[in-house]
Every structure is written in C-alpha cells, then in structure tokens.
Amino acid sequence: MTLLALLFLVPLYVAVVAATHPASAFLRGVPVLPGGDLLANGRQVLVRGLPGTPSVPRMLLNSALMAASVTLGKLLIAVPAAFAIGFFRFPGRRLVFWLIFVTLMLPIEVTFFPTYQVSVQLGLFNNFGGLVVPLLASATAVFLFRQVFAAFPLDLVDAARLDGAGPLRFLAEVALPMARPTLAAVAVIEFVYGWNQYLWPLVITSSPSNATIVMGIREQIAAAESFAVPQWNLVMLVALLALIPPVVVVVAMQRWFVRGLVFQAR
C-alpha cells in the first residue's frame, strides 16, 4: 500500500514542483526540486489570471456552492426516501427499492442526454439550478441509508411508538442520531462527487460566471498553450487549488467517514 501510495503521489509532487517555478524553467525540462515562485504564481492565478479564462476565485466559489448544495440536497432526499422504504409497509415497497437500486447499474451515457433535454425544457440551462438540480437524486445514498435503517431492531420502533413518537419524530430523534456515521460518510462521498463534476457542468453551462474549477482547468490549459512559453506552472497551481477543498473535507471527516463505512460493513 505504501508503494502504491508513493506511485500515486508522483504526479502530485510534479504538480507541486511545477507550481513553484517560472514558466521558463520548463524549457530546460521538468524541475526536480521546488522553486521560490509560488507566491508570484499565486498572485498571477488568483488576481490577474490567464487571458480569456474565467476568474479562478469565482470558479472555486462556484464549485464549493455546487458541491455543498448537491451534498445537502442528496441527504434531504435520500434520508426520507430510505426511511419510508425501510420502515413503512406499503404495496410495491420492495419493487420501488429495487427500481432505485437498478439505476446504479445504468451507465451515465444512458441517462445523460435525457437529463440534459429535461433540464433545458425546465429552464435550467446556463444557471446555478442546472448545475445542482439534476444531480440531487442519489440511488447510492438511498441504498446506504436503507441498509442502516433496516438494521434497526423492531423493539426500538415499538418503544418509540409506545412513547407517542410519530414517524417524523422517530426519524429526527432516534434514526438520524444513530445514523450519524453514515450521514458523515455519505456527505463526504457526495461532496467529492459534486466537486469533481466535469462533464455535466461543461454541457449545462456556457457562461464563464457559472464555470466550476474542474471544468475551468481545460480553459486554463488552452490559455497557457497560447503563450510563446507555455504557462504550465500556472495550470499546475490551478490544479492544486482544485485539489485542496476535497482533500480538506476528507481529512477533516476521516474519523466519521471510516466509522460510517465500518457501520455499513456490520
């Protein structure tokens, strides 16, 4: 595992080294050791930017808002859906669950065009709603929460009913506190999923004001190659800036994330 980790860290190290050198350093090959131009490159990227590219701070903000909105929306939809499937008895309950589960097996190419067509018809093209709304449904989150709720002992449900707790009170005061590790794990997964979206923002938006940082890297590459000396140092710095927020979330939530996965494995 250590060897594999080191292997995957090599491109990251190259990006860090490249971000600390001027563009002219690449004319002599890829530098091996970090340089002293990180602050100068940072000012160029964050203040002036590359010509013809969206603002990097604005793209970072768009990505953060998109990832947070997608995460919150998925939780708000998946938790009640899984709660209803796990605790309520109604005709077709298992069929509904398996229909949701089957969507996990569909390639993204199958649903991509219909989702785009419906989004355009609903007026979601080239706005923030188009970035978020089509991504809110999550079969993975419904499946994970349903497994958690299905593991609850029936005695616990009966005891809550005897105490006069209705379904919503039971969900808020009993089910969700017991499912906190899973909530944290799903939140981390969905935040990284929302942050790393590339193809969907690229298709559903055309305005630079709605660009996300991941899709914006493509514009940075095109602009960097237009110089007499390609500005690969700036592109690498933008890529590192795009990497920081999801890494911070994963590291900050690591303990809860692992507990959530262990809870699912029981």
Rank of each mutant, 00 (worst) to 15 (best):
N126C: 01
V174C: 10
T53I: 03
F257P: 01
I189R: 01
P208Y: 02
L61I: 13
G35I: 09
R58L: 15
G42M: 14
L144T: 06
N210T: 05
A172P: 00
T2C: 10
D37C: 07
S226N: 12
W98A: 06
L241C: 07
A185G: 08
L33F: 14
N126F: 03
G42D: 04
L6W: 12
P11G: 08
A5D: 06
A84N: 02
F88C: 07
N196H: 02
F191L: 06
V47R: 12
Y193W: 14
I77E: 04
V10R: 06
N233W: 03
L3G: 12
L6P: 10
A184D: 02
T2N: 11
A81P: 03
Y198R: 07
M178A: 14
L106F: 15
V192S: 01
L6D: 09
A185T: 04
L99N: 10
T205Q: 08
R93W: 03
V248E: 05
F113A: 15
Q197L: 11
N210G: 00
G123V: 06
M215P: 03
T115S: 14
A175D: 08
Y116G: 03
L104N: 13
L27G: 09
N233G: 09
V258L: 09
I244C: 09
G36P: 00
A81E: 07
R89W: 06
T212C: 07
R266T: 08
L199E: 07
L60S: 08
Q117D: 03
I221W: 02
R255E: 11
P245T: 05
I204G: 08
V132R: 07
M215V: 10
E219D: 15
Q44C: 01
L176S: 04
A265Q: 13
D37W: 12
Q44N: 12
V238E: 05
R94C: 00
N126W: 04
A151Q: 12
V17R: 05
T20P: 10
V10I: 15
P114T: 05
P54C: 03
I213N: 06
L27C: 07
P114L: 02
A187V: 06
G36S: 13
P245K: 06
